[in-house]
Design a binder for these strands. Structure first.
Length: 279
DNA sequence: GTCCATGTTCTTTA
DNA sequence: CTAAAGAACATGGA
Protein backbone atom coordinates (compact mmCIF):
# COMPACT_ATOMS: atom_id res chain seq x y z
CA UNK A 1 0.00 0.00 0.00
CA UNK A 2 2.63 2.51 0.68
CA UNK A 3 4.68 4.26 -1.92
CA UNK A 4 6.10 7.69 -1.36
CA UNK A 5 2.80 9.65 -1.53
CA UNK A 6 1.02 7.27 0.85
CA UNK A 7 3.92 7.24 3.30
CA UNK A 8 4.13 11.03 3.25
CA UNK A 9 0.37 11.29 3.79
CA UNK A 10 0.57 8.97 6.79
CA UNK A 11 3.33 11.16 8.23
CA UNK A 12 1.39 14.36 7.58
CA UNK A 13 -1.76 13.05 9.25
CA UNK A 14 0.09 11.39 12.12
CA UNK A 15 2.50 14.19 13.00
CA UNK A 16 -0.04 16.64 14.47
CA UNK A 17 -1.12 13.99 16.98
CA UNK A 18 2.18 12.49 18.05
CA UNK A 19 4.75 15.25 17.75
CA UNK A 20 5.76 16.25 21.26
CA UNK A 21 3.89 13.33 22.83
CA UNK A 22 5.48 10.98 25.33
CA UNK A 23 5.32 7.21 24.94
CA UNK A 24 3.83 5.97 28.20
CA UNK A 25 3.08 2.42 27.11
CA UNK A 26 3.89 -0.10 24.37
CA UNK A 27 1.90 -3.25 23.63
CA UNK A 28 3.68 -5.67 21.34
CA UNK A 29 1.02 -8.16 20.29
CA UNK A 30 3.36 -9.98 17.93
CA UNK A 31 6.99 -10.21 18.96
CA UNK A 32 8.42 -10.80 15.50
CA UNK A 33 6.90 -7.62 14.07
CA UNK A 34 9.39 -5.50 16.01
CA UNK A 35 13.16 -5.30 16.20
CA UNK A 36 14.68 -6.11 18.58
CA UNK A 37 11.93 -8.70 19.14
CA UNK A 38 9.62 -8.56 22.13
CA UNK A 39 10.14 -6.75 25.42
CA UNK A 40 13.52 -5.08 24.70
CA UNK A 41 11.77 -3.12 21.96
CA UNK A 42 9.26 -1.72 24.44
CA UNK A 43 11.94 -0.84 27.00
CA UNK A 44 13.70 1.35 24.44
CA UNK A 45 10.55 3.37 23.80
CA UNK A 46 8.85 3.76 27.16
CA UNK A 47 9.30 7.25 28.59
CA UNK A 48 10.66 8.70 25.33
CA UNK A 49 9.20 11.78 23.76
CA UNK A 50 8.55 11.93 20.01
CA UNK A 51 10.31 14.97 18.61
CA UNK A 52 9.93 14.68 14.87
CA UNK A 53 8.65 12.53 12.02
CA UNK A 54 10.54 12.21 8.79
CA UNK A 55 10.37 10.22 5.60
CA UNK A 56 13.23 8.59 3.71
CA UNK A 57 12.06 6.76 0.61
CA UNK A 58 9.12 4.64 1.76
CA UNK A 59 10.29 4.58 5.36
CA UNK A 60 9.04 6.58 8.32
CA UNK A 61 11.55 7.72 10.92
CA UNK A 62 10.29 8.74 14.32
CA UNK A 63 12.94 10.79 16.09
CA UNK A 64 13.03 10.40 19.88
CA UNK A 65 14.30 12.76 22.54
CA UNK A 66 17.30 10.54 23.33
CA UNK A 67 18.65 10.76 19.75
CA UNK A 68 17.46 7.25 18.96
CA UNK A 69 14.86 6.63 16.28
CA UNK A 70 12.02 4.29 15.46
CA UNK A 71 12.08 3.10 11.85
CA UNK A 72 8.73 2.05 10.40
CA UNK A 73 8.30 0.01 7.20
CA UNK A 74 4.69 -0.31 6.16
CA UNK A 75 5.43 -3.20 3.81
CA UNK A 76 2.54 -3.89 1.48
CA UNK A 77 -0.47 -3.61 3.80
CA UNK A 78 0.74 -1.65 6.82
CA UNK A 79 -1.59 0.88 8.46
CA UNK A 80 -0.92 3.35 11.25
CA UNK A 81 -3.99 4.87 12.84
CA UNK A 82 -4.62 7.22 15.74
CA UNK A 83 -7.23 5.83 18.11
CA UNK A 84 -8.91 7.71 20.97
CA UNK A 85 -11.11 6.23 23.64
CA UNK A 86 -11.50 2.56 24.51
CA UNK A 87 -11.23 0.64 21.26
CA UNK A 88 -10.65 -3.04 20.76
CA UNK A 89 -7.73 -3.41 18.31
CA UNK A 90 -8.70 -4.47 14.80
CA UNK A 91 -7.61 -7.84 13.50
CA UNK A 92 -3.91 -7.94 12.51
CA UNK A 93 -2.95 -5.16 14.90
CA UNK A 94 0.59 -6.03 15.97
CA UNK A 95 1.78 -3.06 18.01
CA UNK A 96 0.05 -0.34 20.05
CA UNK A 97 1.72 2.78 21.39
CA UNK A 98 0.07 4.56 24.32
CA UNK A 99 0.84 8.28 24.12
CA UNK A 100 0.24 11.35 26.26
CA UNK A 101 0.59 14.89 25.03
CA UNK A 102 2.49 17.40 27.14
CA UNK A 103 0.56 20.17 28.82
CA UNK A 104 -3.19 20.49 28.19
CA UNK A 105 -5.02 17.21 27.75
CA UNK A 106 -3.81 14.69 30.32
CA UNK A 107 -5.71 11.76 28.76
CA UNK A 108 -3.86 9.17 26.74
CA UNK A 109 -4.48 8.09 23.18
CA UNK A 110 -3.18 5.22 21.10
CA UNK A 111 -1.42 4.61 17.81
CA UNK A 112 -2.26 1.21 16.26
CA UNK A 113 0.05 -0.56 13.83
CA UNK A 114 -1.92 -3.01 11.71
CA UNK A 115 -0.50 -5.10 8.86
CA UNK A 116 -2.36 -8.21 7.60
CA UNK A 117 0.45 -9.49 5.40
CA UNK A 118 3.18 -8.58 7.88
CA UNK A 119 5.73 -7.50 5.30
CA UNK A 120 6.27 -4.38 7.37
CA UNK A 121 8.27 -3.92 10.54
CA UNK A 122 9.02 -1.56 13.40
CA UNK A 123 12.73 -1.30 14.00
CA UNK A 124 14.41 0.51 16.88
CA UNK A 125 17.54 2.31 15.67
CA UNK A 126 20.42 3.29 17.91
CA UNK A 127 22.54 6.34 17.13
CA UNK A 128 24.97 4.29 15.06
CA UNK A 129 22.35 2.57 12.95
CA UNK A 130 21.91 4.40 9.67
CA UNK A 131 19.64 3.50 6.82
CA UNK A 132 22.16 3.00 4.11
CA UNK A 133 21.67 1.59 0.66
CA UNK A 134 18.87 3.95 -0.37
CA UNK A 135 19.08 5.96 -3.56
CA UNK A 136 18.19 9.64 -3.85
CA UNK A 137 14.73 11.08 -3.19
CA UNK A 138 12.54 11.30 -6.31
CA UNK A 139 11.31 14.77 -5.36
CA UNK A 140 14.88 16.07 -5.47
CA UNK A 141 15.58 14.58 -8.87
CA UNK A 142 17.26 16.41 -11.73
CA UNK A 143 17.71 15.13 -15.28
CA UNK A 144 21.41 14.90 -14.53
CA UNK A 145 20.83 12.75 -11.44
CA UNK A 146 18.48 10.55 -13.41
CA UNK A 147 21.11 10.05 -16.09
CA UNK A 148 23.56 9.03 -13.36
CA UNK A 149 21.04 6.56 -11.92
CA UNK A 150 20.49 4.96 -15.33
CA UNK A 151 24.10 5.09 -16.47
CA UNK A 152 25.44 1.75 -17.64
CA UNK A 153 22.23 -0.12 -16.84
CA UNK A 154 20.76 -2.37 -19.48
CA UNK A 155 17.83 -3.25 -17.24
CA UNK A 156 14.35 -2.12 -18.19
CA UNK A 157 13.80 1.45 -17.02
CA UNK A 158 10.80 0.33 -14.97
CA UNK A 159 12.95 -2.17 -13.07
CA UNK A 160 15.45 0.54 -12.21
CA UNK A 161 12.69 2.88 -11.02
CA UNK A 162 11.54 0.16 -8.61
CA UNK A 163 15.07 -0.45 -7.32
CA UNK A 164 15.18 1.41 -3.99
CA UNK A 165 18.98 1.41 -3.99
CA UNK A 166 18.88 3.53 -7.17
CA UNK A 167 15.99 5.80 -6.23
CA UNK A 168 13.96 5.54 -3.03
CA UNK A 169 10.22 6.02 -3.03
CA UNK A 170 8.60 4.81 -6.24
CA UNK A 171 6.62 1.56 -6.26
CA UNK A 172 4.57 -0.24 -8.87
CA UNK A 173 1.78 2.32 -9.17
CA UNK A 174 3.85 5.47 -9.51
CA UNK A 175 6.51 3.87 -11.71
CA UNK A 176 3.84 2.92 -14.25
CA UNK A 177 2.04 6.26 -13.99
CA UNK A 178 5.25 8.28 -14.35
CA UNK A 179 6.39 6.28 -17.39
CA UNK A 180 3.03 6.73 -19.07
CA UNK A 181 3.05 10.46 -18.42
CA UNK A 182 6.54 10.63 -19.94
CA UNK A 183 5.49 8.45 -22.93
CA UNK A 184 8.32 6.00 -22.30
CA UNK A 185 8.11 2.26 -22.92
CA UNK A 186 8.73 0.58 -19.55
CA UNK A 187 10.92 -2.05 -21.23
CA UNK A 188 13.41 0.47 -22.60
CA UNK A 189 16.91 -0.29 -21.32
CA UNK A 190 17.59 2.46 -18.78
CA UNK A 191 20.90 3.61 -20.24
CA UNK A 192 19.31 4.00 -23.67
CA UNK A 193 17.04 6.86 -22.68
CA UNK A 194 17.85 10.06 -24.51
CA UNK A 195 18.17 13.48 -22.96
CA UNK A 196 14.65 14.52 -23.94
CA UNK A 197 13.23 11.40 -22.33
CA UNK A 198 15.24 11.88 -19.16
CA UNK A 199 13.93 15.41 -18.93
CA UNK A 200 10.33 14.29 -19.37
CA UNK A 201 10.63 11.42 -16.92
CA UNK A 202 12.25 13.61 -14.29
CA UNK A 203 9.39 16.07 -14.64
CA UNK A 204 6.55 13.52 -14.68
CA UNK A 205 7.87 11.61 -11.66
CA UNK A 206 7.73 14.77 -9.59
CA UNK A 207 4.39 15.90 -11.03
CA UNK A 208 2.75 12.51 -10.43
CA UNK A 209 4.08 12.22 -6.87
CA UNK A 210 3.11 15.79 -5.96
CA UNK A 211 -0.38 15.42 -7.33
CA UNK A 212 -0.79 12.09 -5.53
CA UNK A 213 0.32 13.69 -2.25
CA UNK A 214 -2.17 16.51 -2.72
CA UNK A 215 -4.91 13.89 -3.04
CA UNK A 216 -3.76 11.87 -0.03
CA UNK A 217 -2.27 8.96 -2.00
CA UNK A 218 -3.91 6.06 -3.81
CA UNK A 219 -6.39 3.81 -2.01
CA UNK A 220 -6.47 0.86 -4.39
CA UNK A 221 -7.27 -1.67 -1.75
CA UNK A 222 -7.23 -0.76 1.90
CA UNK A 223 -4.75 2.05 2.28
CA UNK A 224 -5.84 4.70 4.76
CA UNK A 225 -4.01 7.59 6.40
CA UNK A 226 -3.44 7.98 10.15
CA UNK A 227 -6.98 9.29 10.60
CA UNK A 228 -8.48 6.39 8.69
CA UNK A 229 -9.22 8.44 5.57
CA UNK A 230 -8.73 7.04 2.08
CA UNK A 231 -6.75 8.81 -0.61
CA UNK A 232 -8.27 9.63 -3.98
CA UNK A 233 -5.40 9.59 -6.47
CA UNK A 234 -6.59 6.15 -7.66
CA UNK A 235 -9.29 8.01 -9.57
CA UNK A 236 -6.56 9.64 -11.64
CA UNK A 237 -4.61 6.49 -12.51
CA UNK A 238 -4.06 6.43 -16.25
CA UNK A 239 -2.58 2.95 -16.64
CA UNK A 240 -2.16 1.18 -13.29
CA UNK A 241 -4.80 -1.53 -12.98
CA UNK A 242 -6.29 -0.62 -16.38
CA UNK A 243 -4.91 -3.38 -18.62
CA UNK A 244 -7.41 -4.25 -21.33
CA UNK A 245 -9.16 -0.88 -21.04
CA UNK A 246 -8.78 1.91 -23.59
CA UNK A 247 -6.02 4.47 -23.18
CA UNK A 248 -7.51 7.81 -22.12
CA UNK A 249 -5.20 9.56 -24.53
CA UNK A 250 -5.43 7.52 -27.75
CA UNK A 251 -8.04 4.83 -27.14
CA UNK A 252 -5.65 1.96 -27.78
CA UNK A 253 -6.17 -1.05 -25.52
CA UNK A 254 -3.72 -0.90 -22.63
CA UNK A 255 -1.43 -3.90 -22.26
CA UNK A 256 0.17 -5.57 -19.30
CA UNK A 257 3.31 -7.59 -18.93
CA UNK A 258 5.64 -8.69 -16.19
CA UNK A 259 8.78 -6.69 -15.42
CA UNK A 260 10.99 -7.14 -12.38
CA UNK A 261 8.38 -9.55 -11.07
CA UNK A 262 5.63 -6.95 -11.11
CA UNK A 263 2.64 -6.45 -13.36
CA UNK A 264 3.33 -3.50 -15.61
CA UNK A 265 0.57 -1.62 -17.42
CA UNK A 266 1.26 0.67 -20.34
CA UNK A 267 -0.12 1.99 -23.62
CA UNK A 268 1.63 0.32 -26.57
CA UNK A 269 0.94 3.33 -28.75
CA UNK A 270 1.62 6.31 -26.46
CA UNK A 271 4.63 4.56 -24.94
CA UNK A 272 6.04 3.16 -28.17
CA UNK A 273 9.78 2.79 -28.03
CA UNK A 274 11.66 5.16 -30.28
CA UNK A 275 13.81 3.73 -32.99
CA UNK A 276 17.32 3.33 -31.62
CA UNK A 277 19.75 5.96 -32.65
CA UNK A 278 22.15 4.73 -35.28
CA UNK A 279 25.66 4.93 -33.98
C1' DG B 1 -8.84 -24.60 -5.72
C1' DT B 2 -6.46 -20.60 -8.62
C1' DC B 3 -4.38 -16.26 -9.29
C1' DC B 4 -3.28 -11.77 -7.88
C1' DA B 5 -1.98 -7.89 -4.72
C1' DT B 6 0.75 -0.52 -3.24
C1' DG B 7 7.27 -4.50 -0.96
C1' DT B 8 11.76 -6.34 0.17
C1' DT B 9 15.25 -9.84 0.35
C1' DC B 10 17.39 -14.03 -0.49
C1' DT B 11 18.48 -17.73 -3.87
C1' DT B 12 18.97 -19.51 -8.33
C1' DT B 13 19.93 -19.14 -13.07
C1' DA B 14 22.11 -17.33 -17.19
C1' DC C 1 31.53 -11.50 -11.73
C1' DT C 2 27.10 -9.39 -12.76
C1' DA C 3 22.48 -9.17 -13.74
C1' DA C 4 18.14 -10.82 -14.21
C1' DA C 5 14.65 -13.99 -12.95
C1' DG C 6 12.37 -16.58 -9.37
C1' DA C 7 10.96 -17.70 -4.86
C1' DA C 8 9.92 -16.57 -0.39
C1' DC C 9 7.52 -14.15 3.23
C1' DA C 10 1.61 -14.06 5.01
C1' DT C 11 -3.03 -12.93 4.27
C1' DG C 12 -7.21 -11.86 1.91
C1' DG C 13 -10.13 -11.00 -2.07
C1' DA C 14 -11.99 -12.00 -6.67
Amino acid sequence: MPELPEVQTVIDTLAPHVTGATIVGVHVLRDDYVRPPGAPFSRHLIGRRIMDLRRRGKRILLHLDDANRLLIHLGMTGQITVVRGPTFPARHTHVILILRQQGGDPSTFQVHFRDPRRFGQLCFLGPLDGEQGLGPEPLELTPRKLAEIFKGSRRAVKAVLLDQSRMAGLGNIYADESLFAAAIDPRTPAAQLRAAELGRLCRTIKQVLRKAMRLGGSSVRDYVDAQGAKGSYQTLHKVYGRAGLPCYHCGTELESLRLAGRTTCFCPKCQHRQRMRTK
